[in-house]
Design a protein around this nucleic acid. Sequence first.
DNA 1: CCTGACTGTTGCAATATGTGCAACGCTCAT
DNA 2: ATGAGCGTTGCACATATTGCAACAGTCAGG
Lengths: 253, 253
Amino acid sequence: MSQTVDRALSILPLLAEGPADLGQVADRLGVHKSTALRLLRTLHEHGLVYRQSDQRYRLGARLFALAQEAMENLDIREIAHPHLVRLNEACGHTVHLAVYEENEVLYIDKVESRYPVRMYSRIGKPVAITVAAVAKLLLADLPEPERRAVTDQLDYPMYTARSTPNAEAFRRELATVREQGWATDLGGHEESINCVAAPVRGADGRVVAAMSVSAPNVVVTAEELLTLLPLVRRTADAISGEYSGRTPIKETT
Amino acid sequence: MSQTVDRALSILPLLAEGPADLGQVADRLGVHKSTALRLLRTLHEHGLVYRQSDQRYRLGARLFALAQEAMENLDIREIAHPHLVRLNEACGHTVHLAVYEENEVLYIDKVESRYPVRMYSRIGKPVAITVAAVAKLLLADLPEPERRAVTDQLDYPMYTARSTPNAEAFRRELATVREQGWATDLGGHEESINCVAAPVRGADGRVVAAMSVSAPNVVVTAEELLTLLPLVRRTADAISGEYSGRTPIKETT
DNA sequence: CCTGACTGTTGCAATATGTGCAACGCTCAT
DNA sequence: ATGAGCGTTGCACATATTGCAACAGTCAGG
């Protein structure tokens, strides 16, 4: 809608791939160098872009700070966090909280396992949407047309033999998940890691987030992990209750 | 330099404080609602801004993805990571890697302690610049005028009784650090946590990053932690060597 | 030491671009 | 039903953005 801003913002993903100099940026944007220069300058003033010693540009520190701040201000996260911690204390495994947003599912909180063997994940990182237990819950609750659209346009990488192979299989799985109100990922992302997940619902019953407990085979078997399902669901419900209770909007203006 | 972009980018920190509706954004930008709307739309198209169910805007998922991607593409980080892991395996404590950028110091990598008691920190989060051991190393190496400017304009919060109290004390500390080539933080940020840090240098000898080992009192005393100094310095030097060896620029165009 | 190629940078004039306005549609509460 | 409050659209004006061309600085090679 706004050409200038559009161009400026297009620079960001471009720089995310790696540092680039003025000429490269101008070329890839299809604009004159002087134009690119002015856009980069504006981005620089806002700290979104940084000029390293060799004069090339890369993404700047404020970007990280912004992302952090935004995440810490999510109200679901704030409400859920103590519950996640308590769940972690009870079972010892890694606990995740995730939300869906525009074709992506991302972790917004995490409490690390107390066992030495830990799974790899990072807050803010988009999750493997076709296999993760939390992703299934979040997608299962989308309105039908959107769910169809999203599942159609997804890639279905075979991380392991048990990964979701294609859109149809995924939609069947989502139907099951919607029905039962919880989800699992049994080695669909990494061979040796299993997850159990439950949904957090808002006042209107819509799923606003999902939480999961993950543990590697070497610590507990899939069956043992499933034992935790009631506890996970209870925790998720507790968060739902608290979340839909009041809407604590900050109006400190 | 570019008014439109400038206004659009000003929306981001504003939304980082929390969700806001169109009117609020327009007011705080000092522009007409229709203008704000178009800016927000452009931001939305790029995924930097998300419209939640109550129609209010907040920062979007792509922001997190961008921050992640940018961080993972930092070449120092890539080179350093295996060294950090090895150091962690050797000593068991939390290992951090940090860089300085435009008045901020931020963690760009972290390997978690193998002990159950862990310190709080998060990749991408700006560090307590006046007390952190890594911050001291990075600031100590700035050219004198810039160092003066930065240290002057900083706040000096007293996290603990041993925090750096003011600019002068800080500059004295920085002088010492520059002299000795390593730094510590002994309970200056959190009473019970100590750190030892060493600098990573580029080919020209300038400090490009700093790494630290942190551990709480309950696990090892400050003296025991200092025992690790030679190991930390050796690791930092190894990274320096590898980093200044070649400049592995990605040119996969 | 000079030359030429390359990069980033600035001033300027033309016009495409973004702006504020006013009117519309919508939802929600009274 | 009625009105207030919000987001949204079309339009005419003029401002802010653009590409150009010329400049400055750096580096490599002859």
